[in-house]
Design a protein around this nucleic acid. Sequence first.
DNA 1: TTATAGTACCTTGCGATACAAGGTATTATA
DNA 2: TATAATACCTTGTATCGCAAGGTACTATAA
Lengths: 107, 107
Amino acid sequence: MNTDNTKSQMRKGMLEYCIMLLLHRQSCYANDIIQRLREAEMIVMEGTLYPLLSRLKNDGLLGYEWRESTQGPPRKYYTLTADGEEALRQLDASWEEISRTVNFLKQ
Amino acid sequence: MNTDNTKSQMRKGMLEYCIMLLLHRQSCYANDIIQRLREAEMIVMEGTLYPLLSRLKNDGLLGYEWRESTQGPPRKYYTLTADGEEALRQLDASWEEISRTVNFLKQ
DNA sequence: TTATAGTACCTTGCGATACAAGGTATTATA
DNA sequence: TATAATACCTTGTATCGCAAGGTACTATAA
């Protein structure tokens, strides 16, 4: 029984949405995001996150700026662009639709 | 902006769960499932559904039986097995967890 | 009887993406 | 000066949804 696989599949598509929800509230750099999503019980790997952030940036949904750190190398802080905020609103709607679907099917 | 792509990604992982929710209530054959999920606003393609049903059957989560049709060729009706019911309960828990995560991130 | 349309099942090839593993660069500390 | 810690990124693999194409059976019309 591969429930773990299905479970991870269920979480897969939600990742972008969750990351955008996070960035809607505050700018973050990669390790911030990993940390905060872990607190929200969603595990993300570095190898997943970096390409995903690049993808969203190339799509114009995210921007970033370098900030110095007192602890090590500089950090790349990502922020939602106006297009990103608009996309997030559409994803909010998609999430609502999925919720409705599941609740409908659960009767 | 590829919101459609992200939206479809969001739905991706939910498909198995939704199909199992459906089969929990009644046995269905493929076109039944496509029809009923469409009513629940979740679009599924044949090329997606058939391999998915085979996968779940091979994992022992679904069984099937052939039934004659008055309208054409016989139909393959799928039903949740006991293992399938158990897996569904675990997916219910995963869905609850994802809901909590999203609501937590939405504040 | 034969041809056509409808229904139902399945497979192949492609693209997208999460993840594991490995790599590079910068900074602080021993 | 060497090591550890932090931070960024890339490559290779496996999975999976989807579009397109294919086979088979049944009913209907010519």
